[in-house]
């Protein structure tokens, strides 16, 4: 019995050692990003490279500001991501309400159709969509990213499931007897009830749009219209790469996300798992 206990505790130490190693491997690139972002290029290019933070934090970031419109790109990303998130929340909860609580002919087929669209890879329509955007005159215009981004089949599915289970039919019936229109029911009853689902869906959508790369790269060609992802990539264009500058830009573009995540990490992790598990 005693050897058994010993085995368990030895196994436990192995598990701890493994977890600590994995955690360090997870965190190391963040630390290393900071090291590079604060060191001059000469310290980075020596062998072995710098391993502790240096004193060039400000000057490296100044080089970033000289090279790309960092704040403009962050603002573009913020505008695109928050507009799409807000729009998706409203459009998807409206549609979700309709699919969950309103009866109309073809409801099931229309809903299954929306689920089916989730299977289509976005690259399939990439080229024609580019020409539609060109025809609309939206090249290098944030609308080129925002308007197609408002179409979110997963969001509709997600809101339908939530509304179907969270809003009792009796409340809706009672509101109808009081003479509420369907839109009033949506506005005064559905919206307050689905706020937790808004948080979840909002986080998922915001993250996805914030990190989106291919589509903004194709349609936002003017440097002044770049989102932060497209702008960061252009830091890699110089023939002689200044890694201190490149990672300074990358680091400061990542910091806000990490801070927000650490503040709301429980909600964050719950959102990501709910979004995955329930579909």
């Amino acid at each position: 019995m005693e050897t058994n206990k010993k085995n368990v505790s030895i196994a436990k130490y192995f598990v701890y050692a493994g977890l600590i190693l994995v955690s360090l491997a997870s965190l190391f690139p963040f630390y290393w990003m900071f090291v590079m972002a604060t060191n001059p290029n000469s310290a980075i290019n020596q062998t072995p490279p710098a391993m502790i933070p240096g004193s060039n934090m400000v000057s490296n970031f100044q080089l970033v500001l000289d090279s790309i419109p960092f704040w403009g790109a962050m603002l573009n990303s913020l505008i695109v991501s928050s507009t799409i998130t807000l729009g998706v929340l409203i459009l998807c909860s409206l549609a979700g309400f309709a699919f969950a609580k309103l009866d109309f002919p073809g409801r099931t087929i229309l809903f299954v159709f929306i689920l089916g669209t989730m299977m289509i890879p976005p690259q399939l329509g990439l080229i024609p969509t580019y020409f539609i955007i060109t025809e609309l005159g939206w090249l290098s215009d944030l609308r080129a990213v925002i308007v197609p981004g408002l179409m979110n089949a997963f969001g509709i599915f997600w809101m339908r499931q939530y509304i179907a289970s969270a809003v009792p039919d009796e409340i809706i019936e009672a509101a109808r007897i009081d003479g509420c229109s369907n839109f009033r029911i949506y506005w005064n009853i559905i919206i307050p009830t689905v706020l937790p689902a808004f948080a979840t869906l909002g986080i998922i959508v915001f993250m996805a749009i914030w990190g989106d790369y291919l589509w903004p790269l194709v349609v936002l060609q003017d440097q002044s219209m770049h989102t932060i992802q497209v702008a960061l990539r252009s830091l890699m264009d110089d023939r002689v790469r200044d890694y201190g500058m490149i990672l300074s830009g990358t680091f400061w573009a990542t910091v806000p996300l990490v801070v927000i995540f650490l503040l709301f990490n429980k909600l964050f992790i719950k959102s990501i798992t709910d979004g995955a598990v329930k579909s």
């Binding site: 990003m33 990539r233 990358t250």
Partner: peptide, 21 residues
């Protein structure tokens, strides 16, 4: 928290950092 943190970064940031690594 430590293991999940990389997911918060964008793919572009990850690609840049590992390009330098």
């Amino acid at each position: 928290l430590a293991i999940f943190l990389p997911y918060v970064t964008s793919i572009v940031a990850v690609a840049i950092v590992f390009s330098v690594i």
